[in-house]
Amino acid sequence: MKILVCISKAPDTTSKIAFTNNNTSFDENGVQYIVNPYDEWYALVRALEIKESIGAEVTIITVGTSNDEAIMRKALAIGADNAIRIDAEPTDAYFVALQLAEFAKLNAYDLILTGKETINFNGSQIGGMLAECLDSPYVSVASKLEVEGKNIRVEREITGGIEVLQVSLPAVVSCAKGMAEQRIPNMRGIMAARTKPLEVRPALPVDALTSFSSYASPATKSAVKIIDANALDTLVALLHNEAKVI
């Protein structure tokens, strides 16, 4: 089977989040980029597990500039077979989804996996947009996935429970915790990744539908009120009278 895994770059989880240019752009100074954890730990690793159990070709794709080739090599080192980069600076999720869809249409993938969201924009938009472009079924925020012939069996969290779905292929699934465990690339994988194919393709002209006008940091909290460990009635009274949360 053919699996396409969509990956995105994201700032390392320990990065300091700050903004420049009058709060209109993210301050990349000193920021290390990684593969977005949901894309790597869950989508890519699950694709590799499927490859190991029933055989599959795993292609990774990203929409980005040449700066993103480092994270693509990382995904190849973990075990993807080949990589595609659509050469563009992403403008919004719609722009990215249309680029991904254009490539996916050419190659008849059975299964397309994404992370449930990126840790920088938290939009959860790409998977659903891509599925609509391809007129495919879509499962969002899935925590388990098994291939069963021409279908997949997928679990996803819903309000107050877990739903088990049978979905026809081709399909798009966005992946969350539970799907797989993080893998650390070994030296052989890192060496092999250097020679794996990484194809660069031109982007389609697409007009964005949304635009970020500015950013803001959360208001700083006023100093913590320390309550004596023997005066917990006081804490309960403060939560009721002052904070009004109980």
Binding site: A97, G128, A131, Y138, S140
Partner: peptide, 9 residues
């Protein structure tokens, strides 16, 4: 999360 992005496209 599953319906809104589809509708957007």
């Amino acid at each position: 999360r599953s319906i809104a992005p589809r509708l957007s496209v």
